[in-house]
């Protein structure tokens, strides 16, 4: 779920966002319907973001009985500490890891690899998968597979991969390919397996 100012939003590649409801209510529904895990990515850019995200985590933890990951603008050990204390099972970092890869090692050393997820957004440009930031808007010099391997070596427990070329069919296809290339991608395998079993899961993405 993409979150903006405390509400769930939907759009394609973070453009043309529209309101999709209260994240806590949706989380309860998804949990009840048999989802395995939930991921909340806060894409708002307000100064109160840290506080509202921590509050959201607290309320989600209160209501759902499945593991969930939270991400969006997390850039320090302190940020992660607050979110985990409020009840998140895992945190996801993206831009801050690209800018400062050592952050992955620091977080893993403090909290353990089991709760550190690195999100990677990538776009295929002239046949080469390149890492992008800010919802695919900002290209980087990093190649997807090299970055993924580095992320693993630095100790991240899971990778949350999004293909920015297409969030639907092609996205899933890419996840599968990457999953087969780098066998470490627990999350990728996990999602695919469950999606086959529970077709309804697709609808929620």
């Amino acid at each position: 779920m993409d979150i903006k100012d405390g509400r769930t939003v939907k759009g394609v590649n973070f453009v043309d966002l529209r309101d999709a409801g209260d994240p806590v209510e949706l989380a309860e529904i998804y949990s009840r319907e048999g989802a395995d895990e939930l991921v909340f990515l806060d894409i708002s850019a307000t100064e109160q973001k840290r506080k509202t995200l921590a509050e959201l985590v607290y309320h989600v933890a209160e209501k759902v009985s499945i593991p969930f990951t939270v991400g969006g603008g997390i850039s320090s050990v302190e940020d992660v500490d607050i979110l985990l204390q409020n009840g998140a099972d895992k945190v996801s970092i993206n831009s801050s890891a690209v800018k400062n890869p050592q952050l992955i090692n620091d977080l893993v050393a403090k909290f353990g690899s089991q709760c550190i997820v690195v999100a990677i957004d990538a776009k295929q440009i002239e046949g080469e998968w390149m890492v992008h930031l800010v919802g695919g808007k900002v290209p980087t010099e990093r190649k997807l597979f090299e970055w993924a391997k580095e992320v693993e070596q630095r100790g991240a427990g899971e990778i949350l991969f999004t293909s920015m070329n297409s969030r639907w069919y092609q996205g899933w296809f890419c996840k599968y390919r990457i999953g087969t290339i780098i066998n470490r991608f627990e999350y990728t395998h996990h999602c695919l397996r469950r999606c086959r079993k529970h077709a309804t899961f697709y609808r929620y993405l």
Binding site: Y58, L84, G87, D89
Partner: peptide, 12 residues
Amino acid sequence: GNIQSIKFAIKR
């Protein structure tokens, strides 16, 4: 560890 989740589960 994360004991908040256990507390919430018991509350539910």
